[in-house]
Amino acid sequence: MPDDETIPTVGPERRLQLDDVEWRRVSPKYLVVAIVGRIVSAVVIGAAAVFLWLVAGWGWIPWVLPVIGVGFLIAIIIEPRRVRSIGYALRADDLVFRRGIMFQRFVAVPYGRMQLVDITRGPVSRVLGLADLRLVTAAAASGVAIPGLPEADAEDLRDRLVSLAETRRAGL
């Protein structure tokens, strides 16, 4: 099949774009959840490194610590863009989800293929009134997790997806 050149597809900076999709963003408050998550993992890794340095006597740890620190700092700095890159859209027949800047990922899940819609809330999310929505299909790889939805939206979305899945159920 010849290349479908009629659709303008690859954006100016060689980034994959689906132009005709109106992406819905996750709540900006999710940025807090993401940054808290980063800080927690930074603290855990830092504590483990310091433990290895002081107790186990690994002398080279002080050289590695700044590298880890800078890595986490960069991760936290680009976190707002990463959160903005998360998007989802309910199209006529399927749900599309995207995330990632460096490693972009787009997934399209037909409504009829959804086996399960799951809502989870972490401790930080709960304080901010956010929830994560997870879609499960019969394919383990297609797991789509939309983080950082306001709780009411998440529940609406779940009910809507369940009813859509019910009307379009198509075997397995």
Partner: peptide
């Protein structure tokens, strides 16, 4: 008719080469 979902992915190396990967996600 049996496809569960379809994914499109691109990492930095792929982006430099203007390539991407497509995954047809089926049951395992």
């Amino acid at each position: 008719a049996r496809l569960q979902s379809v994914a499109l992915e691109q990492g930095p190396v792929h982006r430099m080469l203007r390539l991407a990967s497509v995954r047809m996600q089926t049951v395992s």
